Simulated assay, not measured.
Amino acid sequence: MKTLIKIMIMIPFAIQAQEKKELPKSKVDYNSFLDISEEILQYREERLIPLHEFLEYMKDENTILLDTRSETAYKNKHLKGAIHINFSDFTKNKLAKYIPSKDTRILIYCNNNIDGDLDHFATKMAPLALNIPTFINLYGYGYKNIFELSSLVGVQDERLQFEGAAAK
């Protein structure tokens, strides 16, 4: 009985000691994020392409048109032929599953490239547009053949074709 009482008394102290133990640092490295952002600044600038070039690249069967918006946004309306990988799901394995080679040409666009349809392409604040973190992450995972649509295109522009539940 005395042993049981001792154990019951000691448990709270053991728990407190465990709680005070220093946990390892998270796997978040803001300085490295800044470094890679700085590293690709000029590189990204050279890979911003206007609509006519973007449309030409889309014709190549070895090119992937990537939509990284939410699954709901993608299912409702996206550029015809786009594949979907939600940005928050980016991992080495998930990207490798959908992108056959690190040399594959990848085209990216986001809400801030499509004008006139706030229901399906709601404009983000310019520095927070999804293209920026998408480009940085693809580059960071080793995909360097990325091209980003630089144009703001009206949703009524006949050169664009859309798919999805809300596409007409």
Rank of each mutant, 00 (worst) to 15 (best):
L55I: 03
F135A: 08
S32Y: 08
F121T: 08
K80F: 15
T72G: 10
K168H: 12
D117T: 14
H52N: 11
S32E: 07
L107V: 09
L79W: 07
Q42N: 09
F33M: 10
N145T: 14
A129Q: 09
R159F: 05
N93P: 00
I64S: 04
T72W: 10
D29Y: 14
T72Y: 09
K97E: 15
E53N: 02
R47A: 04
L79I: 14
A129N: 05
L41F: 10
Y143S: 06
N112F: 04
L95S: 03
M8A: 15
L128K: 14
N62S: 09
D103R: 06
I36R: 05
N62W: 03
E45I: 00
L95E: 04
T91W: 07
I7M: 06
K20V: 07
N113I: 03
F135I: 05
Y109R: 11
Q16C: 09
M58H: 03
I7D: 00
E163Y: 12
I15F: 03
G116K: 14
R44M: 08
G81S: 11
N62D: 14
V155E: 10
P127F: 05
S150T: 04
S88Q: 10
Q42H: 07
A165T: 12
F90Y: 08
A165W: 02
D115N: 11
F87D: 00
M10I: 08
E19P: 00
A82H: 09
A165R: 04
E71A: 12
L130P: 01
D103L: 11
I64P: 01
A167V: 08
S70A: 02
I136Q: 04
G164E: 07
I49F: 08
E158F: 02
N112R: 07
L138Y: 04
L51V: 01
G81D: 11
A122E: 11
E39C: 02
C110M: 01
E19M: 12
K20R: 14
G142W: 05
G142P: 13
K59G: 02
V155T: 13
G164D: 12
L34Q: 03
E56V: 01
I106C: 08
T63D: 04
I7Q: 04
P24H: 12
I15C: 01
S32A: 11
A122Q: 12
E71V: 10
L128A: 14
I106N: 10
I136S: 06
K144V: 00
L118A: 02
R47K: 14
N86P: 00
A167G: 09
K21F: 07
T3Q: 12
K124H: 03
